[in-house]
Nucleic acid binder design. Structure first.
Lengths: 235, 235
DNA sequence: CCAAAAGTGTTGAAATTACACCCATGT
DNA sequence: ACATGGGTGTAATTTCAACACTTTTGG
């Protein structure tokens, strides 16, 4: 799109490459994981990188981020939000690129495995990451921090777990995210008190003889409460 | 700066106008205020706008924001941080512009009044704002929200007040920011308990016969604690 | 019957709130 | 001396963390 006011101040200003980079979290086997791929272009070809793309003229910044995730995993309607902009002049060694980092959460039993592998992307444990290009490590650290903070009052955990989960599973996830053990009894109490968990009759007996009840997150009442300005507190 | 890899993928991507817009808060007479100026260029010339500029090739995004503030107020070393990016395709009616909003706090007894007026900028009470161009109103709301949240654990209030202030003055500011009254006694206790206020002998007798002690914020110990990973809690 | 994990209730400590009371001083 | 707002302490309440105990069932 060209400016309709090209004689004005718009015409003279510098133009920039603008990218979105996506920090995509998954969770499996008590580990937080990150989706990375081997960079194909110089500079730093062959090094591990976050998923990114350049923002095009006819697409919004958030749209660009959603498209990265969709093209790679086949998923739409996941949690995705802007994290921060990274705008240092020399952050990308190849050219001046301003990057707007986004972070996303996906369910690891949901995505399109073949699509992902065809792009050369793979999962990496968060506590065992390879070296990343440019300032991507900084982005990851910031995203993890944001994940921790926002897990307290946003239902982020339920975007990482399958739709049916048990309280012990949920606790394990929180313990992984916060890297600290939680009191078994009080954790349960808090989650139940949020009033947003629906207890199912079905049980998961894989971890104990007695079996733990499955729960579902109550997205309907969550959204209703949100629209009334009520926010839950998970921790 | 042109790409050293111009034959690579960098060369083909779209380039964008990138702006920074600054939400600059001040505080005076129990009112939060905002620095605005009348837009000089089409479209929407004559309407009120935040302070902005285009990011240039040789400057970082944050640098650009700092420069906006400096050119307008003569101030450096103030609180300034990135808020969010605004990247909808049609957000600026004149051209496709991606804007990275920043918010800043300045002391109203500090800045260069003439410099500011020479740019046609002026202060506006936050609860009596004129209509703003584009999505600037959304930026302001987001900044105000951020100010509220971060005032709980960052010493933002002390960036708006003069270096010497009384506890009642401080409380009035918090009450303005949060739009709710605070308990007089407990507010004082909390602030003192932060361990970051230095009591001065001097008193302010403008508001009462007895006079209220002046305090200073203890930036030294604050920074020392920060470097050790200790964060205060003001509320 | 027993081991192992799920689920329930209680109790003491800590933080938070509400408020009564005293202080200093300009008029 | 008294009205006015600043400053101090304390009792009541609420919230939070720690943990003992019961339940269920596969082996």
């Amino acid at each position: 799109m060209e400016s309709t006011f090209s004689n004005s101040h718009y015409g003279q200003a510098d133009r920039h490459l603008v990218a979105v980079d996506c920090i995509i979290f998954g969770y499996e086997a008590n580990c937080l994981q990150l989706l990375l791929f081997k960079r194909k272009v110089e500079p730093s070809a062959g090094k591990w990188s976050l998923l990114g793309r350049f923002v095009q003229h006819q697409e919004g910044v958030t749209d660009a981020a959603m498209r990265v995730v969709f093209e790679l995993t086949g998923l739409k309607d996941i949690f995705l939000e802007q994290l921060a902009s990274f705008g240092h002049v020399n952050r990308d060694e190849g050219a001046r690129v301003i990057s707007i980092a986004h972070f996303a959460l996906i369910r690891k039993d949901d995505y399109d495995v073949e699509l992902l592998e065809s792009h050369g992307a793979s999962w990496h444990d968060l506590n065992n990451l390879p070296e990343l290009v440019f300032d991507h490590r900084e982005m990851v650290d910031m995203a993890l921090n944001s994940l921790r903070q926002k897990s307290r009052y946003l239902p982020l955990a339920f975007q990482l777990l399958p739709p049916k989960f048990t309280i012990p599973q949920l606790r394990a996830l929180y313990e992984t995210v916060f890297q600290t053990p939680f009191d078994r009894w009080n954790f349960r109490k808090r989650m139940i008190n949020s009033g947003l968990l629906i207890k199912l009759e079905e049980k998961d007996k894989s971890a104990s003889k007695k079996g733990a009840h499955y729960f579902q997150f109550d997205w309907d009442t969550y959204h209703k409460q949100q629209s009334e300005g009520i926010s839950p507190l998970f921790l």
